[in-house]
Amino acid sequence: MTCLCFLCVSRDYDELSSIMAVCIAVIAKENYPLYIRSVPTQNELKFHYTVHTSLDVVEEKISSVGKALADQRELYLGLLYPTEDYKVYGYVTNSKVKFVIVVDSSNTSLRDNEIRSMFRKLHNSFTDVMCNPFYIPGDPIQSKAFDSMVSAMMVQAC
């Protein structure tokens, strides 16, 4: 099942160097964080609250779309909600694992397409983590490869 969704995700090696995310989170099906990392200079707790609250919208989007087009549902959920300072984007895998990317509102160079490709990259890397036979699904992600990939997406904000 999950394999099929891997196939859908074409490898995308777009240059994302100019893009900066301030927080990237992977959230399990049961809504507890599998991985959450934010820009170190900023208040980590704030991002945790933001990501957690965004799950409301993720669930709303999944349930509103999920009924009709569960099969060909797009994984990218788009902008979940904007705040004065941040924009929160969501993505949900077929196995209901959620990815949340928070970007700075002042970062106006980001387009929807770039966010999408960030999510695809994240998904690919997550898939690699899941393929690791030593990884127990449901455990916090501690993969170095995943970590460095996330680091690459989070350019230093200072």
């Binding site: 399990a28 049961e30 809504n31 507890y32 964080p33 599998l34 449901g138 455990d139 916090p140």
Partner: peptide, 14 residues
Amino acid sequence: GPLGAGMGGAGAGA
């Protein structure tokens, strides 16, 4: 731990 309670939460779900 940073994710310890997360597992606890998972325990509640699973």
